[in-house]
Design a protein around this nucleic acid. Structure first.
Length: 773
DNA sequence: CGTTAGGAAGACGAA
DNA sequence: CTTCCTAACG
């Protein structure tokens, strides 16, 4: 049992308490993952069948890593039979095998947020509901809230409270919309993310024999990140564990950051009420960060009211103070960060992977990408528009989805005329209207085209096109019975005309789309190979589709490349980095303007701040800008209140040096710049245009990132200095050389460029979108 | 039927 | 600024 060596006292207790309810309050960096893995290993070495252990993690990547670590202690075959994964993936798997209870096909499609939004938009249109009053996103989040609170359509109509709330919000048609949306998803054989949990609850409550089966199987249940579970997840865990009560939850109330998607911090705060016999263990020693970082984080989080009292501490070195950098603009901030990383890389022997840039919103990435790219610093952006949300990927995936579940009307309508095959809007509408009138699905009409054709009111040419299209799909389906998923997908990509269509577009965007499709094919091949090696692996197409539907950005494996990580704070949960740049510390950005109205919202923002801070091992850099380019114009900003919540003793203000003096030579300003956060008024007096240096007025497109082809979000738009003699690319005129620059007003600099093919052109830099090459 | 230009509206976080 | 949607044209 040498794996127990080296655990501290509370860790040891958490690992060796195997029976009964247990709550482990694990502060940031307190060795939580280690405790979880060792506890599972300990269960197995004490004779528990791994098959009877269910471990719910926050990401699939975490599950995978934990399994590997467990395997090292108890061996591969033992670790393999563990049930381990996210709520969504574990219960999707269970729902597939029990789908018949609910009237669902076992090959149901999983709709992501985008898919479900599309369904909703159609529902709103069909019901003739004004989408100005009923913003699809708003409607979607309300429906999500119903589902997460187990308010089914029936329950909705029996719940005057909720109905009244909707009426007060001027949304009295919500019930109608909700019902239609659920019906449509059911008809499509599809579940959205919330359904995976809601339907699991339905399964467990309506069918006692199913509940009993899984209660008996999962005798030991562990839940990681318990503070971020929602009501629906809470009930699933409660139901499954109620027989044996061997339930171990691990979490940190100070790190609850997902209430916007229904997470309920009271699940963890009230654990003792649910299980009065529960034992509580607190892991308070932080092994990750310096004392300075831990102390600063403690000071901030102490401002929150709703939390367990705790005393997180570090025995590590005291460490550097947190450096605070005040910048003039978002571009300036990005330059500071890039310079800083560059310098530390060169002088302190740090690898690029040691650095993380954490921000509140995805839209902040661009400035940093530009700055890093200009310095040739390799980086990788996590999150944002994820790979699988790209249009070209969704298009190909829609074809594949149809093969697995032809009832998936969303997928069908997406591809029926893509690439264009003359099945236009009019035809599509006729199909839909007709299918509705016959109370069948569009796919049923296609399957019985001969029978229905006379009634459709379409001419023979169009009918032939429909028949062609559908026989192609049918051929793919037949092929799928004998060939593997990769072969079929390749055939689909080619025969559907998708690849050809994409290849016709020779713009850099078009080329990258083809590469993306190629990348999807590669990842599919990789998935198949991986699954084949697993004893219980499933290399089928439907398995692949489920995998990508539930994949997270963290799940994508890093290539072991030396790259700076860029991500939102939400995505950084559970990760750690030697050096963290926490950027955009401004009021209305962080805390977000959407979340500063109530105390609850503000406390969550503060927890988010806490999470960001505690990602760092050695060094933290804060930065904020006093003006920022957003919504197409420059906006003034004040420093975030979180900065003023940290005692000055933990902070150090960095001199912003040259840029500042260049722009501000007015006396007095530079001297008190770092003084007073509480008096932001002088910030507002700053002249706005001064920040608009030439670099921010040039917006070249299609900059190829130097980092690598793996960058998730390589869309262009950047700023850079252009000088006489530079070689540049213009969207229309091609490549040329800058021969003359004219003008001092940054808004209005003209450039004379000699193009190879087009001759000399006078261009206004602001509009010309030149790319330096 | 398909493409494109132009206008309106949208932006916090994400399985 | 970007994305989405509609209107007009080819």
């Amino acid at each position: 049992m040498d794996y127990l060596n080296g655990l501290n006292e509370p860790q040891y207790e958490a690992v060796t308490t195997l029976q009964g309810p247990l709550m482990v309050l694990a502060g940031a960096g307190s060795g939580k993952t280690r405790v979880l893995t060792m506890r599972i290993a300990h269960l197995i070495t004490n004779g528990v069948d791994p098959f009877q252990i269910l471990a719910l993690t926050f990401t699939n990547k975490a599950a995978k890593e934990m399994k590997e670590r467990i395997a090292k202690v108890v061996g591969n075959s033992n670790a393999r039979s563990l049930w381990m994964g996210t709520f969504h993936s574990v219960f999707a798997r269970i729902l597939r095998s029990e789908a018949h209870y609910l009237g669902y096909p076992s090959n149901f499609t999983i709709y992501d947020t985008q898919d479900s939004l599309n369904v909703l938009k159609k529902v709103l249109k069909e019901l003739n509901i004004d989408s100005d009053l009923y913003k699809p996103k708003k409607v979607q989040s309300r429906i999500s809230a119903y589902k997460n609170n187990l308010i089914t359509v029936n329950a909705y109509y029996n719940n005057p409270e909720v109905m009244e709330a909707d009426e007060r919000a001027n949304m009295k048609h919500m019930g109608q919309i909700y019902q239609k949306y659920v019906e449509q998803c059911f008809k499509n054989g599809a579940m959205d993310f919330d359904d995976l949990l809601l339907r699991t609850n339905e399964l467990l409550t309506r069918f006692p024999e199913v509940l009993a089966k899984y209660q008996d199987r999962f005798r030991y249940i562990l839940v990681d990140e318990y503070q971020d579970t929602n009501h629906s997840q809470y009930l699933i865990v409660k139901a499954l564990s109620s027989k044996f009560e061997n339930i171990c939850v691990v979490g940190d109330d100070a790190q609850s950051i997902y209430s916007f998607r229904g997470a309920n911090i009271y699940n963890i705060l009230n654990f003792k009420k649910d299980y009065p016999d529960a034992k509580t263990v607190s892991l308070e020693q932080n092994y990750r960060s310096t004392q300075n970082i831990v102390n600063a984080a403690n000071v901030v989080i102490a401002k929150n009211k709703a939390q367990f009292p705790k005393n997180v501490f570090s025995d590590n070195e005291i460490g550097d103070k947190i450096k605070v950098y005040r910048s003039l603009s978002d571009a300036d901030e990005a330059n500071f960060v890039a310079n800083n990383i560059w310098e530390q890389h060169n002088t302190h022997q740090r690898k690029f992977t040691d650095f993380a840039i954490l921000y509140r919103t995805n839209s902040q990435t661009r400035a940093f990408e530009d700055a890093l790219r200009r310095k040739n610093i390799p980086y990788r952006v996590y999150g944002g528009l994820s790979f699988y949300q790209r249009k070209e990927i969704k298009d190909l995936v829609a074809y594949l989805r149809i093969l697995v579940n032809e009832n998936d009307n969303e997928a069908l309508m997406r591809i029926i005329n893509y690439p264009a095959r003359s099945i236009g809007e009019t035809t599509q509408n006729k199909l839909i209207v007709f299918a509705d009138s016959q109370n069948v699905r569009v796919v049923d009409v296609l399957n019985n085209l001969g029978q229905y054709a006379p009634q459709l009111g379409l001419n023979n040419g169009v009918i032939a096109k429909l028949a062609d299209f559908w026989s192609m799909i049918k051929a793919f389906q037949v092929m799928l019975k004998t060939e593997n998923a990769y072969t079929v997908a390749m055939e689909v990509a080619q025969r559907s005309g998708l690849i050809k269509f994409l290849k016709d577009d020779q713009t850099p965007e078009g080329i990258s789309r083809v590469e993306n499709v190629q990348e999807l094919m590669n990842s599919m091949q990789g998935f198949i190979d991986e699954q084949k090696q697993l004893e219980d692996g499933d290399p089928s197409l439907s398995s692949f589709l489920e995998n990508i539907a539930l994949s997270t950005d963290q799940d994508k494996k890093s290539e072991n490349e030396d790259q700076v990580s860029l991500m939102t704070i939400h995505l950084s949960k559970g990760l750690e980095f030697p050096v963290v740049h926490l950027v955009g510390l401004e009021e209305n950005l962080f805390p977000s303007f959407m979340s500063s109205s109530t105390r609850e919202e503000l406390e969550e923002e503060r927890r988010l701040f806490y999470v960001a801070l505690t990602r760092a091992e050695k060094q933290v850099f804060f930065s904020y800008a006093i003006s920022r380019f957003q919504w197409g114009k420059i906006t003034d900003a004040e420093p975030s209140r979180f900065l003023s919540e940290i005692d000055a003793e933990y902070l150090e203000f960095v001199n912003p040096a040259v840029t500042e003096k260049k722009v501000f030579n007015r006396s007095g300003l530079t001297s008190d710049i770092f003084g007073d956060f509480s008096e932001p008024k002088f910030v507002k007096k700053e002249p706005k245009k001064t920040f608009n240096a030439p670099e921010s007025t040039i917006q070249p497109k299609n900059l190829k990132p130097v980092a690598s082809a793996r960058i998730i979000n390589p869309s262009g738009g950047s700023s850079q200095d252009i000088e006489v003699g530079d070689r540049v690319r213009h969207d229309r005129f091609g490549v040329g050389e800058v021969i003359f620059l004219d003008g001092t007003d940054p808004e209005n600099i003209k450039a004379k460029v000699k193009f190879a093919t087009e001759g000399e052109k006078n261009l206004i830099l602001k509009f010309a979108k030149l790319t330096k090459i």
